[in-house]
Design a protein around this nucleic acid. Structure first.
Length: 595
RNA sequence: GCACCCGUAGCUCAGCUGGAUAGAGCGCUGCCCUCCGAAGGCAGAGGCCAGGGGUUCGAAUCCCUUCGGGUGCGCCA
């Protein structure tokens, strides 16, 4: 029930009508104009720039954009639900709808807040929303997740929910980098813990290994299972065993950390599981695929400029022609020793995703992967023959602070602040909301002290409290009118014309924006817009509530006027419902009371 | 050297894919409330949207460029 979309269609129809009578070109692209809330509420309920956008096309028949605007406005005025449509400035059209339109919006939001926000299936819609694959987290299985991983995790999870909410079939996916040198290093560190568990004194861990004590249980468990039988085996015998045990333990830990944030994936895809070997090599097949498209060749890359490359020497490699797709240089698929690069494996993996049917691929990664974006997009386009596209969402760093003071993080000592510690301290809701309350490509400051405060500076609390307050008002109403039916269906019968106060009408207008915000957030892949919207809505709601302090006639519950109470309860319930629906998309709970 | 991201109020950040007088929260100033519905309300000051060019009816938004910050740059994953 998106009234902005509704009026967009109506105006498009009016323009098409002008097209039929030969006064405008037939095939005007409706996406060029917008219908949006006016900056100033005094201007009306909706505004459109349609007349100005099509000024050039209208010049012959209408002269000025203003004249086109006048005629569009005249046609709008004749439509159902339109109170007035007037032209302002150079050609804006401000539309004011009749009260019954706002009543319809309010009822829709009240009866089914989530359904209200979903895009309505249009008649003759071209196609169902495309299948989307969202890959997120993908932290290497070499230790506990830290806070930066958490941001990507929460972001990817909320984005996946958002896309599912608006109708896309969504696959949530985790790529386990379990095939590189890092996991061998992990295995060596675990082996040291194993020997330790057998009673050896290990002392200092070697440079570049994983000294964190999260490997201690892995060593102990290996000692339990194998006794000392691994200790004297050759490395190529114990390594696969220890590696598998260590990776399994790390992934169990990571999944546990994710579960604490209520983050789940449909697919955990192991890099090691990509078929390899003579009987079927997925990476080789992917390279052959690209080669068949004429995009692979043997060549030598120029040395990187500006970086003093002492040890650089020209070597011939197998290269992917990513420059055909806008990359800066072609990228190697095989190292000089003939083994595959990580990029080659990643190409094979994305090929799997495309083969499974995904057309919109999204990778959520840390900002340090920025240099990787172009080549991966090139690969996806090449592999799919242009059918699929990849959007890469880079999440910037998280700076943990407490009361404004930076929290020390030292990876070297192994005592970095883990995601789990933060979740345990402030709760999953706070972590999720704060991480979604910022654009993904902007750095995030996370104040551990602030997010547990019960004040307006704490957006988590402020929004959740609005929901709790809505629930509380409903309870209070039952105390005043014990026989009142406060179910949404019953409240929807209330006389909506009794909503007359400017603050109340402002709230209805704010509710009307929810579907639009959801749609835009989904299209832009920016869940933070929902968080900001919820904060604005909560803010207006709290303000209206507070007005009742000084002006008792504005209180939601009026013991003298049952009908007024009903309609205000309808408003309050709709607000509560929309906040719950919005928080639901973000994966944040909507409590009925704050403690 | 090149590529990508960022630069908006004192601080932290929004700004709806080009619209009307650039917004919010903190902080600051001044009133109100602080028993009557649960952790406050109202108002004000504060901006060359980093600088400069361009595109057009119209630019914080798009393009070019300069400056400043971050990230990355074959045989790491």
């Amino acid at each position: 029930m998106n009234i902005f979309a509704l009026f967009h269609e109506r105006i498009a129809a009016i323009l098409a009508g002008f097209g039929e009578s030969g006064r405008l070109p037939i095939a005007l692209e409706p996406a060029r104009f917008v219908v949006e809330p006016p900056r100033d509420a005094a201007h009306g309920d909706l505004a459109t720039n349609a007349a100005m956008v099509f000024a050039r096309e209208a010049k012959a028949s209408f002269g000025s954009p203003r004249q086109l605007a006048i005629e569009i406005a005249a046609a709008l005025t004749a439509l159902d639900g339109v109170d007035q449509a007037e032209v302002a400035g150079p050609g804006f059209i401000n539309i004011r709808v009749k009260p019954e339109v706002l009543a319809v919006v309010l009822r829709a939001a009240l009866i089914d807040p989530a359904g209200f926000a979903k895009p309505s299936a249009r008649e003759g819609a071209s196609a169902a929303p495309a299948p989307v694959n969202v890959e997120y987290v993908s932290a290497n299985p070499t230790g506990p997740m830290h806070v930066g991983h958490g941001r990507g995790a929460v972001f990817g999870d909320a984005l996946a929910s958002l896309l599912a909410f608006v109708g896309h079939p969504v696959t949530r996916e985790y790529y386990i980098n379990d095939a590189g040198a890092q996991v061998d290093t992990l295995a060596h560190s675990a082996f040291l813990r194993y020997r330790e568990a057998l009673g050896e004194t290990i002392g200092e861990f070697p440079e570049g290994s994983y000294p964190g004590d999260y490997l201690v249980p892995v060593g102990a468990s290996l000692a339990d299972i194998y006794g000392d039988r691994l200790k004297d085996k050759a490395e190529d015998e114990w390594l696969p065993i220890v590696r598998a045990a260590a990776i399994a333990a790390m992934m169990a830990m990571i999944r546990d950390d994710l579960a604490a944030l209520d983050i789940r994936h449909d697919v955990f895809f192991s890099e090691r599981s990509l078929p390899h070997g003579p009987e079927g090599d997925a990476v080789a097949a992917a390279i052959a695929d690209l080669r068949g498209r004429g995009l692979v060749y043997q060549g030598t890359l120029p040395p990187p400029k500006g970086k003093p490359g002492e040890d650089w020497e020209a070597r011939e490699q197998t290269l992917f022609r990513s420059t055909d797709f806008g990359d800066d240089v072609d990228r190697p698929l095989r190292k000089s020793d003939g083994s595959y690069t990580y990029f080659a494996a990643d190409i094979a993996y994305h090929r799997v995703k495309i083969d499974r049917g995904a057309r919109d691929l999204i990778d959520v990664m840390g900002a340090d992967h920025g240099g990787y974006v172009k080549r991966m997009q090139a690969a996806v386009r090449a592999l799919s023959g242009g059918e699929a596209s990849l959007d890469v969402k880079l999440c910037q760093l998280v700076q943990l602070v407490r009361d404004g003071e930076p929290v020390k993080m030292s990876k070297r000592s192994g005592s970095f602040v883990t995601l789990r510690e933060v979740v345990d301290e402030v709760g999953a809701d706070a972590v999720r909301f704060i991480m979604l309350h910022r654009k993904n490509d902007a750095p995030l400051e996370f104040d551990l002290a602030r997010v547990v405060e019960q004040t307006r500076d704490n957006p988590v609390f402020y929004v959740q409290y609005a929901h709790a307050r809505a629930a509380s008002v409903r309870g209070k109403a039952l105390a005043a009118f014990p026989d009142l039916d406060v179910s949404p269906a019953a409240l929807a019968e209330a006389d909506m014309t009794l909503l007359a106060d400017a603050g109340e009408l402002g709230l209805v207008r704010e509710l009307a924006q929810f579907p639009r915000i959801v749609e835009q957030a989904a299209r832009a892949h920016e869940p933070h817009r929902i968080a900001f919207y919820l904060y604005d809505l909560a803010s207006l709601f709290h303000a209206q509530w507070t007005r009742g302090k000084d002006q008792p006639q504005l209180r939601f519950i009026n013991e003298e006027h049952r009908e007024t109470t009903c309609v205000r309860l309808a408003l309050v319930s709709a607000i509560g419902g929309v906040i719950a629906a919005g928080l639901g998309i973000l994966g944040v709970s909507a409590p009925s009371e704050m403690r």
